[in-house]
Nucleic acid binder design. Structure first.
Lengths: 153, 153
DNA sequence: CTGATATCATTTGCATACGAATGAATTTGA
DNA sequence: TCAAATTCATTCGTATGCAAATGATATCAG
C-alpha cells in the first residue's frame, strides 16, 4: 500500500464521508435546478414569451428608450445574447429600433404600442409567477431567501 | 368597482409603489443572475469542462454505470440535453457507452479511466468553486441559503 | 490634429435547454 | 396473448448564453 493510500485512509477515518462528493449538495447544481423550476413556472403562465424576452420588455417599460447595449447591461445579457432577444421581439412587433442621431454606433430600442400593451398585460402574471416560485417558502423564509440570493447575484 | 379592485387598492395604499414593477426584485431575474455568476466562477476554475459536463462525470463517479436516460434524471437534464452532453464527453474520451444486454432500448454510460482520473482531479476544485460562490455570505447565511434554495429546487 | 484606445454592434462557433415528433423496444392489462 | 400504453433514445427546431473576432464610430492623449 502506498503512502497516499495510507493518508487517504486517515482522512476517511476522520470524516467518514470525505470521498463522497454529492452533486445535490453543491450550490451550483441546486441553483441550476431552482432556475429550471422557475423557467418552467414562467412558461406555464406566460407561454408566448421567454423570461429574457419578458425582462427586455419590462425594462424598456420601466426606463423607456435606450441603446441595445445599455439594455443588455441592465438585464444582464451580453451583446450577442441581447441582439438575438431584440431581433425576435422586433420580428413580433413588440419593440422597434432606430439609429441614434448623434452616436452612429448606437441602436436605440423602444417598445411599440403593442409591446407596451403586452407588458402591461403580463406584469400581473409575473407577480403570480414570483409568488408561485416562492410558494415552498413561508413569507419570512422568502424574504430571507431573496435577501441572501441578491447578495450572490 | 369589483371586490378585486378594492383589494388591490388596499394593497396599493399599504405598499405605495404598486404600479412600479422592478425587474431586479423578481426572484426569477435574481436567480438567473446568481446562476450566471456561478457559471462564471466555475469557468474561471475549470475551463475545459462545463458545469453540466462536470455534473455528468460527478454523478457517474458517484453511482457508476447507468443508462443515459437515468443519468439525465439524476442530473436534471432532459433526454435531448443529456444526449448532447454525453456525446461531447464521449468524443473527449471521458465516458464510454455500451448497449444494455437485456433491455435493448437502453444506452449504458460509464466513466473511462481518463474520465475517472479527470473527475478525481476536479472534485477539489469544485469544492473551491462552491466556496467562492458562497463567499458573499457568512457561514450561517450560507447554510440558511442552501436550506431555502433546496426547498425551491 | 491624429494615432491609440475604447465603445457599440454584429457575426460565428459552441454548449446548454426544452418541446415535439419519431422509432424501437418493453411492459401492461384486458 | 396481443393490442395499448409506456419507456428509451434520437432528431429537429427554437432560444438563450458566452467567447472571440471584426468593423464602424467615438473619445482620448500627446
Amino acid at each position: 500500500m502506498s503512502g497516499e493510500d495510507n493518508l487517504l485512509r486517515l482522512v476517511e477515518a476522520e470524516d467518514g464521508d470525505e470521498n463522497n462528493y454529492h452533486l445535490q449538495d453543491q450550490v451550483g447544481f441546486i441553483l441550476r435546478k431552482a432556475h429550471q423550476r422557475h423557467v418552467s413556472i414562467f412558461a406555464s403562465h406566460i407561454g408566448d414569451l421567454t423570461p429574457p424576452q419578458f425582462a427586455a420588455l419590462a425594462k424598456l417599460y420601466d426606463i423607456g428608450e435606450t441603446s441595445q447595449n445599455q439594455l443588455g447591461t441592465l438585464i444582464a445579457m451580453d451583446a450577442a445574447t441581447v441582439k438575438g432577444v431584440i431581433d425576435r421581439l422586433k420580428a413580433r412587433g413588440l419593440v422597434e429600433v432606430s439609429k441614434h442621431e448623434v452616436d452612429k454606433r448606437r441602436l436605440l430600442v423602444n417598445l411599440t404600442p403593442e409591446g407596451r400593451e403586452a407588458i402591461e398585460r403580463l406584469i400581473p402574471l409575473a407577480r403570480t409567477i414570483t409568488e408561485e416560485t416562492l410558494a415552498p417558502l413561508t413569507a419570512k423564509e422568502a424574504a430571507t431567501f431573496l435577501r441572501l440570493l441578491a447578495k450572490l447575484a
